[in-house]
Amino acid sequence: MTRTILITGSSSGIGRASAKHFHEQGWNVIATMRGPEKETELTALENVLVTRLDVQDSASITTAVDAGVERFGRIDVLLNNAGYGAYGLLEAIPMAKARRQFDVNVMGLLETTKAVLPHLRANGSGTVVNISSIGGKVTFPLGTLYHGSKFAVEGLSEALHYELAAIGVRVKLVEPGIVDTDFAGRSFDFTNDESLAEYQKLVGAVLEGQAQLGAAGDKPEVVAETVYRAVTDGTDQLRYPAGPFAAELIAQRAATDDATFLGGIKNQFGI
Rank of each mutant, 00 (worst) to 15 (best):
T51S: 06
R52Y: 08
L53S: 02
L53K: 04
D54K: 05
Q56Y: 00
D57L: 10
D57P: 09
D57F: 08
S58I: 12
S58P: 11
A59L: 13
A59D: 15
S60P: 10
I61T: 12
I61H: 03
T62M: 05
T63A: 15
T63F: 02
T63V: 09
A64Q: 09
V65N: 08
D66E: 15
D66G: 09
A67R: 10
A67E: 09
V69M: 04
E70S: 15
E70W: 08
R71M: 09
G73Q: 07
G73K: 06
R74F: 02
R74A: 13
I75K: 06
I75G: 01
D76T: 07
D76E: 10
L78S: 04
L79Q: 06
L79I: 15
L79H: 12
N80T: 11
N80Q: 08
N81H: 08
N81P: 12
A82W: 00
G83D: 06
Y84Q: 04
Y84E: 05
Y84V: 02
G85I: 06
G85Q: 09
G85S: 14
A86E: 07
Y87F: 14
Y87W: 15
Y87Q: 09
Y87V: 11
G88Y: 12
E91S: 11
E91A: 13
E91F: 00
A92H: 06
I93W: 03
I93C: 08
P94R: 02
M95G: 05
M95A: 07
M95N: 12
K97Y: 04
A98L: 13
A98Q: 10
A98N: 03
R99G: 02
R100L: 15
R100A: 13
Q101T: 12
Q101E: 14
Q101K: 12
F102M: 14
F102G: 04
F102T: 01
D103I: 04
D103Y: 08
V104R: 06
V106I: 13
M107G: 04
L110E: 03
E111C: 05
T112G: 02
T113E: 00
K114V: 12
V116N: 10
P118D: 07
P118A: 06
H119F: 12
H119G: 03
L120V: 05
L120F: 13
L120T: 00
L120D: 05
A122P: 00
A122M: 07
A122K: 09
N123R: 14
N123C: 03
G124Y: 14
G124L: 12
G124M: 13
S125P: 01
T127I: 08
T127V: 15
T127F: 02
T127P: 08
V128K: 06
V128D: 03
V128A: 07
V128Y: 05
V129Q: 04
V129D: 00
N130D: 03
N130M: 02
I131Y: 00
S132C: 14
S132P: 01
S133R: 03
I134R: 05
I134A: 07
